[in-house]
Amino acid sequence: MSAREAILARVRAATAGTQVPPAPEVIPRAAGTLTEDPLLRFRRLAETSGSTLDAAASPAAAPGRVAAYLKEAGLPQTAVVWPALAALPWAAAGIAAAARAPRATDAIGITAACCGIAETGTLLLLSGGDSPGATSLVPETHIALLPRACIVCDLEAAFARVRAEHGALPRALAFISGPSRTADIEQTIVIGAHGPRRVHIILIG
């Protein structure tokens, strides 16, 4: 008998005749999730988790805001951007943008979130041909564009949105809440473990 058959046979024997308990009637959400204004809550909790926020009137206005952020943070005006964002006027804003997958040396990565989740102030990024997962991960600074209209209440709404728009799940769903961190040494929180040190969100619209 294969390992698969052996394991399943044992599991079947153990579960035979077991009553399946009913599904929970309600899954509680964090207090305020369904009553607070989603945009205000998203902003508040994204800041709590260590992200910074800005706004731009339209996608075309985003590169200007990115340039202003980089200048203020004392960072170079050179970034690797998702190929999906290649058409935005980066050069006009003074940003040398490379639309490709990131390399180990890239310092700034620019992506676009599929949605923002108000419950926890979380970004959802989807992997794809023109949206490499590494862009939000390898560079020290991650800048994410997020259309205001794409802020949803909770995780359930985010899953529903992905399924409605894509059918099957993309290979990687990355739910990102602030810069990477560790508390492994003496339970002291340090920002910037293996992932980005800075997460900057630009709300569009």
């Binding site: 990687a172 739910f175 602030g178």
Partner: peptide, 15 residues
Amino acid sequence: NYFTLLTGVRGATES
């Protein structure tokens, strides 16, 4: 900070 949901292998167009 990161909650990741991984499904299947790299797509033909993915880098």
